[in-house]
Design a protein around this nucleic acid. Sequence first.
DNA 1: CAGTATCCCTCAAGATACTG
DNA 2: CAGTATCTTGAGGGATACTG
Lengths: 148, 148
Amino acid sequence: MQPTKTLKTEPCPVARTVDLIGDRWSLLIVRDAFDGMRRFGDFQRSLGMAKNILSDRLHKLVDAGILARRDASDGTAYQEYILTPQGEGLFAIVVALRQWGEQHLFAPGEEHSVLVDKRSGKPVPRMALLAEDGAMLMPDVTAVRKVT
Amino acid sequence: MQPTKTLKTEPCPVARTVDLIGDRWSLLIVRDAFDGMRRFGDFQRSLGMAKNILSDRLHKLVDAGILARRDASDGTAYQEYILTPQGEGLFAIVVALRQWGEQHLFAPGEEHSVLVDKRSGKPVPRMALLAEDGAMLMPDVTAVRKVT
DNA sequence: CAGTATCCCTCAAGATACTG
DNA sequence: CAGTATCTTGAGGGATACTG
């Protein structure tokens, strides 16, 4: 028996994604990367996590093709971790998590961070799933189907 | 020290959401609930997880206001678990996880499930973050800001 | 069938010391 | 500063037996 069942071979994409990044830290590292963070120490201070765990997660994210490890741009001997195009694809996930949390996990008036459009300075609208004609797709008009 | 640092009081909504549902099973239970699943045994068979863990997760999801526990509609003595409005709000997260997984975690031609619009039968478009004027918002034109 | 209770084990996570 | 290595702990997860 494997102690924790692997979901890597599940036919459901949700399951595979959760298996890959559904842990306590990976998505928070990615969030910080979206925020422009690149260096080991910056992540570590920002997240307050143990360095060995951070090291492990960074390697896993690199192996998964989500982050790329590069020589630091400032000429020091160190590395920096930047999002790959595949990693940038996680934006929708991070935004969806953020928007749900903003709406449901803060007391009224409680301070929290919001995502804004840099150009206008205004908070971004709520993300939604749209049909081809632009209508909002609610859960009940969608279904899961198998394809190859 | 608490063995696992709590993120419940973090100012970042992403962190709080991850703390709440960022585990191996919660989002898969929610996924199944979106698929119309309601009964304990159905979840258990679908997910293949230990019953005690399922019991624990269902309680936590109920406590979090994501699922509601009701008497079964078929007159049996048992309960069913259905998504609350707050739980339905997780749709965007599940869809975002699904779409990223579809794109990055399957070999070409490998069978997987897709989300379709029931009315047209066609796969739904990729979810994206849109500005008020309908333009797609890429990560680099957004920033995180604190508000109260 | 729908759970709850118990036991066990693994691994994620943390603390700390160490190296280049 | 940027990591790696080692040790310890406890929570998460699993198997199984039990109850209504």
